[in-house]
Amino acid sequence: MIYLKTILNVIDNSGASLVECINVFGKGNKSAGRVGDKIVVVVQQLRSARLLSQNAANRVQRGDVRHAVIVRTKKEWTRPDGTVVRFDDNACVLVNNQGEPVGSRVMGVVARELREKYSKIVALAPKVI
């Protein structure tokens, strides 16, 4: 359940570590963002320098407004086959306006729901649940 003011972990090497959600695309004021939804975020905290990507142009600054895709949520959801999935944190991956990831690596597990729309994130992720 991601909406205005939700703080999310960033699990790529774009440079950000914590971001705050300021909008969920395609939802009204009342409904929450789920895995696979695109959101607008503000970068709140940066990662330490050694995990950053080599490309300085891709790096983000504190206070930047960026697009991101939700890859994990704490709120459980049901899949068509009846399986219920839940992660321990809310996490996202920063993307550009075309939906391609800003960073070159994805650290940590992502949900299978991203396969069709964001196959690049799924390909970069070490584990898919």
Binding site: D81, G82, T83, V84, M107, I129
Partner: peptide, 22 residues
């Protein structure tokens, strides 16, 4: 059955129907 594990330092919970054909 609700199964919990840690995948890449992140806790994941999966609740699976026992008689599910999938």
């Amino acid at each position: 059955v609700r199964v919990r594990s840690e995948v890449a330092q992140i806790g994941v919970e999966l609740s699976v129907k026992v008689y599910s054909p999938s």
